[in-house]
Computed example of a mutant assay.
Amino acid sequence: MAAHTRWTRLLEILGDQGQIDVLDAAERLGCSAATVRRDLDELARQNLLTRTRGGAVVSTVAYDLPLRYKAARRADEKQRIAKAAAELIPTGSTVGLNGGTTTSEVARELALRPEPAGGGVALTVVTNAINIANELAVRPQVKIVVTGGVARPNSYELVGPLVDSVLRTLALDYTILGVDAVHARFGAATHDESEAGANRALAECAGTVVVVADSSKLGRRAFAQVCETGAVSVLVTDRDAPEDVVEEFTGLGIDVLRV
């Protein structure tokens, strides 16, 4: 198992359990205790956990993992979700994208959109995610608009009042939101309140809000609400989404696509 994959699994275990034991982790990952100790030391150096005698406990950022560690989690599901979400966007639309691993996959799908006959712009993408802007800026068929703001290193998202000052002047056809949790009663949410504010602004200026979230995020709550459930038109998730949870969303008039 590659080091990056081990680090991701260790952080996932910590997020679920709050602590981890070296010997238990070695057994679960199929590697030596010495390897786990080195991995935990490296993650502690990155301030992603706190080392203890014989293991580690979560630090304040362990629940909000950097994007580079989230990318490997449920990768197949995210790619299917991204493809289905991108197919909802007609050519010629203006679409907002926030940051995250699933929306980054959506951006890659949108980048494949062919240039209109005779040239010109196939889509206009408005984003507060600098990694998405970087990928799309080289696509001549995509007009890319980037909000201002202060960059968060965990998610590559721009946050703060500059985001609002740009978005309040724009009208979007669609906004595709990646979130940390989506609940039938408590809406779509994320772990960081500054990201929630920027994402809320993207949602509020859109005619249609599409939430992309794998099944592990359904029926869960996170610290900061992005938008109420009633603001969501479409939820795109994977085939493992529990039937009872899906029925809660469809009962509220939300179209749920399981792919």
Rank of each mutant, 00 (worst) to 15 (best):
T50I: 13
T50L: 13
T50W: 11
R51N: 02
R53C: 06
R53L: 10
G54L: 10
G55H: 09
A56Y: 06
V57A: 05
V57Y: 08
S59R: 13
S59F: 12
V61L: 12
D64E: 14
D64H: 15
L67M: 11
R68V: 06
R68Q: 11
Y69T: 00
K70D: 02
A71Y: 12
A72Q: 14
R73D: 04
R73A: 04
R74E: 10
R74T: 05
R74L: 11
A75F: 12
D76I: 11
E77A: 15
E77H: 11
K78C: 02
K78P: 00
K78N: 04
Q79A: 12
Q79C: 05
I81M: 04
A82P: 02
K83N: 09
L88C: 10
L88W: 10
T91Q: 15
T94N: 03
V95Y: 10
V95W: 11
G96D: 01
G96L: 03
L97H: 04
N98H: 08
N98S: 02
N98V: 00
G99C: 07
S104C: 04
E105A: 15
E105P: 00
V106K: 05
V106C: 06
L110N: 03
L110G: 02
A111N: 06
A111W: 10
P114R: 13
E115L: 10
P116R: 10
A117W: 09
G118N: 05
G118F: 04
V121I: 14
V121N: 05
V121E: 09
V121D: 03
L123A: 00
T124H: 14
V125Y: 09
V126D: 03
N128R: 07
A129N: 06
I130A: 06
N131Q: 09
I132G: 01
I132K: 00
A133E: 01
N134D: 13
E135P: 00
L136V: 01
L136P: 02
V138N: 13
R139H: 14
V142P: 04
K143R: 15
V146Y: 09
T147F: 11
G149F: 08
A151T: 03
N154K: 11
S155K: 06
Y156F: 15
E157T: 00
L158V: 00
V159F: 07
V159K: 03
G160L: 07
G160A: 06
G160H: 11
L162G: 05
V163H: 12
S165L: 13
